[in-house]
Amino acid sequence: MITEKELERLAILARIKLSEGDKKSLVKEFDSILGYIDQLKKVEVSLDASARVGSVKNVTRPDVVENTSREDRERLLNEAPDRQGDFIAVKKILNNT
């Protein structure tokens, strides 16, 4: 039902590297899962996009900064895998040329 090629595309979209072995077992597992959830296609439904759980409404709050303590900022920055001063360091994205 799903090919290895399709699976590769999904993995690129999801930013996950897959080994050849992963792909083989995932194709099999996808077949069994999709075979199960495909039964839903039999249900008569009217498709309308406004899904809501119970009577929950969105509650908003003013967009104001509440916490500016140095200590909390340090805490957040310290969790970064690579920190340079007050910045989180990542690899260069643009080429020099």
Binding site: I37, K41, V43, V45, L47, D48, A49, A51
Partner: peptide, 14 residues
């Protein structure tokens, strides 16, 4: 086929 349909059936179940 999947996500929208699932949401519709979710409302039916509710």
């Amino acid at each position: 086929a999947y996500y929208n349909r699932a949401n519709a059936v979710r409302r039916m179940i509710t």
